[in-house]
Design a binder for these strands. Sequence first.
RNA 1: GGCGAGUUCGUCUAGGGGUUAGGACGUCUCUCUUUCACGGAGAAAACACGGGUUCGAUUCCCGUACUCGCUACCA
Length: 524
Amino acid sequence: MVATFVCAMESGVRVRFAPSPTGPLHIGGLRTALYNFLFARKHNGAFLLRIEDTDRNRLVPGAEQYILDSLRWCQLHYDEGPDIGGPCGPYRQSERLHLYRHYAQLLVERGHAYYAFDTAEQLEALRRELSQQGSDLQQYDATTRNRMINSLTLSADEVQQRIASGQPYVIRALIPQDEEIQFVDRIRGTISVHSRQLDDKVLFKSDGWPTYHLANVVDDHLMNITHVIRGEEWLSSTPLHVLLYRFFGWESQMPQFAHLPLLLKPEGTGKLSKRDGDRLGFPVFPLAWTDPETGQTSPGYRERGFLPEAVINFLALLGWHPSGNQELFELYELIHDFSLEHIHKSGARFDFEKARWFNHEYLKRLPGEEVARLWQQFPEFYPQGVSWDYLVQVCDLLKQRCSLLEEFRDAGRPFFERPVLPKEWVQQHDKGQVNLWLPELLQALDRQSDFSKTKLEELLKNFLAQHGLKAGAVLPALRLALLGVNQGPSVADIMAVLGKEEVSQRLQAALHVFTSIDNPKVNT
RNA sequence: GGCGAGUUCGUCUAGGGGUUAGGACGUCUCUCUUUCACGGAGAAAACACGGGUUCGAUUCCCGUACUCGCUACCA
């Protein structure tokens, strides 16, 4: 027998993130999860993960695991979920299948739902007919259900007969004809919809699985959910859900609703989609995702070198902001400041540049050691055969001018491989002059035992003064000689990290290049 | 089309009956500096429109426009 009572829980806030494993978790879904998480932590409540896998056609293998991995990467730990269990489990709707038929039938028994046998063709014919009549509403509802094939128009015997003979059927909600349905949305205030606008939604499909509407309401109730925080796309079907709570007699325990604004395209109109990311060159998924059908891989925030903390911070502020001017929030601050009341009503455009800025802010604040550890997660361009100490020093330099870890690939290379000096850059320097001072500098460096940044700065300064050279004429050429770049860290920084021996060798090599390359720029 | 929701700088937003309408990203200028970046200083940049209510509306109310969402045996 099916349990019809709610599992016993101490009172308190209980929220859930209920994604459907039809693909990788979208960045918008991640924000929904985040807001649920923040709300739960703020109120010392429980945050649960429920997998809504009732659409068997759109199920994508690996998607569920991907969702779990994504939440873990973002440190959005849930208290109850499919992989960790909990007092209200199971947390996968496919494992709760027995419940839904029971509750659907309960509704039929109470006269709030009915069996319908119409075929897809018959439904299509109905819509077409209503459309031709110019009807505003083209739906299966109080005005049309009486001419369809269902347990309202058929005799009880015939209904039993059809079911017994295995004819496919669905169970539809019996929506009252003339009633104003009201509910309070914590973000938008009182929402009011007339029942005339609602159709007799299918609650239980002919494949034996429930639709979102049924499963969602049943599970939220059985799992003692106190607040439903979800995307705005659900606002329109909330009146139906409110009706279902009433039909079941659960109205007094109905959760509060909060519908989140959508994440919009950076430009143009509409919801943010995977295509936008591909087109504009930014990820829309937290982690890389390989489509099992096409084999195509989309990069994720992690793979592009984002820190989860930065992604969370960025995402949190896309649609929510507490009073004040703070931009950078630690997780505990987000939790402390979070409130439904400060969630915006309108959609937020996605701004990848700002995401980059957040990441740089987090990267800059990290000690070199931490950055180096993060770098290890990128084996494709993690330098081999380099001492940890050296790597940490390089990281301290790179984090100043790289916003994403992926930029370490190019920015870091000259620290691990002797650079090839681009000819056109070499030609920009006065060969005659360089050939004069570079050998002398080499000697000066040779005599220098302390290769600390401050001592090197001192040495450079003195050297320039002694030879009457301008910094602008020497330092850029030195940077080029040392790293093969014409912009980057300060020369003293570079030398200090490279070390005496390496500096000497690189400068000697560069000297050869400077003497061997034609210099169109004769003494000016 | 119908229904629902929304509308403050280019973007994310703070604010709220009387404000020089604040911050951040981005852009630009200056500064620091050997370059880039960082840091510092500054500039340009917004209350969709029309009616009310009010001494006064960007803020409250009503319309209009526009945008988004829903309108599946998808979630």
